[in-house]
Design a protein around this nucleic acid. Structure first.
Lengths: 219, 219
DNA sequence: TAAGAATGTCCCCAGACGGAGACAACGACG
DNA sequence: CGTCGTTGTCTCCGTCTGGGGACATTCTTA
């Protein structure tokens, strides 16, 4: 009808808000599909064809908008506070040991609730592509900042290599979480049962308490 | 010459010991090639075609002799004392804590020296096929027996969930070893450097000592 | 020696993969 | 209204995968 649509020039379209051709919406659907595939099938099911099918679009568009599967991953990682950005903030109370214990609990909860992150952590051990290494850097920086924030001005007892102890416990958490996803047993413990889970958690907390209790005699 | 070759009926062949058609030798070459591929490229490069090329034989023979790639894996796992069978025996001396410390050191050394085992541990986290689960069972049983042998009649201090603590430390060792193979950094520590390695080892030993020292007050 | 089984080689098959070219439909803009 | 860039669809290509059929060669046994 030749209405000089200056009032809504860019977004003008259907009477409803839906557009049949909308690049932004398509990109979002592709990213959603990517998250879904990674969470469900992991990187083995993460291909161009499968992604296009899951997103309900042509695979050509994946190449056009993200160049690559790596591009999709990059976009996934760059999106919003993806990496523990919205992790439950830990109240910085108590001494170093108590704060680290609280932080570990929060981290464990966040990790166990995020299947995509789990898949990425597992795949890093198989094929650390350039993209995954970049994401790893971002992630580890975010975690380091988070730890520093929680730690505040408290300090571990002298004579303890706190970074090393923390690394050991984080490593254990990672491995046991990844393993529980598929094998559900390790070293005689049943990781799937709530009882086994509790024993593991208790052991990690006990180690934290032992290592960081202030009344220890250094050396 | 119609020599009634009853003296060496089965193995009779060329004047030299080499046979041009020798199923056993071919199977051995295939298994060797499999180990080589797994150590070098991991499970991503582990295919029928690649295996045949590496072994220098036709891929048809793989199917004939092992049915499957899974069959190759099964044969690999069943072969001789593959799973830590030839691990350096740990002298059972000292109390529970000292013995566990020695065992951890031996286990760490064996694991770090075995790239195939590392690849299997990593792949278990990605796709635990039926074969890998079977191998896992055998492996974990072997480790459990080993631990029991080293432990002897010693006991951990009361009030400590020793299996859980051991599981945590073993999990950490697994993860850090797998990670060092590809990413060489974790939680701010440089796993590749001997210094970082030493800090990790020291931290794990310190945790062991803390958890299992006898003069602790239980609870 | 003759027959038959075992071993090894070559070639083909259907299917999935990532990628790209050709083209249709739609929207913005002059 | 006409043009042009964007968005989306369809189709084909080369490659690799695991698998198997047909066949030559060698070894063992009758």
């Amino acid at each position: 009808m030749s209405d000089h649509a200056d009032t809504a020039p860019v977004e003008s379209n259907d009477a409803l808000g839906v557009r049949r051709r909308d690049r932004a919406a398509t990109e979002a659907r592709i990213l959603d599909a990517a998250r879904r595939i990674l969470a469900r099938d992991g990187f083995l099911g993460f291909g161009v064809n499968a992604l296009a099918a899951e997103a309900g679009c042509d695979k050509k568009l994946i190449g056009r908008y993200f160049t690559d599967l790596d591009g999709v991953l990059e976009a996934l990682g760059g999106a919003l506070g993806f990496w523990l950005g919205d992790v439950p903030e830990v109240p910085p109370k108590g001494d170093y040991g108590e704060r680290m214990a609280a932080l570990f609990q929060a981290y464990a909860t966040a990790l166990r609730a995020d299947p995509v992150l789990q898949q990425i952590l597992a795949w890093e051990l198989i094929q650390p592509s350039a993209v995954l290494q970049r994401l790893e850097t971002v992630r580890s920086r975010a975690v380091a900042l988070w730890m520093a924030r929680v730690r505040g001005d408290t300090a571990p007892p002298p004579g303890v290599d706190a970074p090393a102890v923390n690394a050991v416990l984080l490593a254990a958490l990672h491995y046991l979480t990844l393993r529980q996803r598929t094998l559900q047993g390790f070293a005689g413990l049943d990781l799937a049962s709530t009882e086994g889970q509790a024993r593991i958690d208790d052991a990690m907390l006990a180690i934290l308490r032992l290592a960081y209790s202030q009344e220890r005699s250094p050396t």
